[in-house]
Amino acid sequence: MSAVRRFVLLGVLALAVLPTPAEAGRRPFIWVWDTEIVPKGDVELEQWLWVKSRAPGVPERTSNYWVWWGPVFGLTQRLELAVPFQVLATRERTQLESFDADLRLRFNPRGDDSPWQGLLRVAYHHTIHTTQPPRLDANLVQSFETEGGLRLVLDLGAQVGLPALRGQEGPVRLLGTYAAGVSYPLIEDELRASLEAFGEIPLQGIPGGQHHFVGADVAWTFGRTWVTLGVMVGLTPLFPETPQFMPRLIWAVVL
């Protein structure tokens, strides 16, 4: 058989056959937060790349490219901490945007067999170079998994911008977010396909309108790595200021 086909086959088989880690498809969604956390004592390196493309309603706003990069530590059977930094790249400049501390708390310990699981996420977003104020995020996530592996996740969150934390002037900004997703395992422990919807509603102090997206993505686990790739499509006919596309790639490797 030709070398190319062999290589492809090898790749396919390797993907198909190499043993899977204990956690599989950890983040089935690109936007919706999920209730699974890293096992205690494990460290993952996550990297997100995403783009906020232009909105038809705000033609002068250019696309933004983001990189989120950081380790994720499993602290306890319930607690997970991520400490990433974020980089924003626009057409004019690329700059280190923020350092974050992202804490996720599961209500039930890992290994709990209940189909209902909940998670609370609290994150502090410390901006560095932008005019954006430091931010505090909070998300409440509830998931339900059926016997067949179908997963339904609802995620409600709020982002509070506190300029005072840096001694800046300005009002407190409040952004409400909601996200919901449905994920289905195509190949158990290996491939999941998902649909999600996400929306941001500025509540206070944030210019601009609401953004609402729907998207689809696919999450793939192989070996010590998992990848989730998807795209959110802005509902621009309804909300013209919503960026048209928001694709995101999440990639993580267990150390």
Partner: peptide
Amino acid sequence: LEGIQSAHDVIISADTEV
């Protein structure tokens, strides 16, 4: 059966020359 099925699919897709 799942394992068999997946192996089956791999064999078919891999073109039996392998």
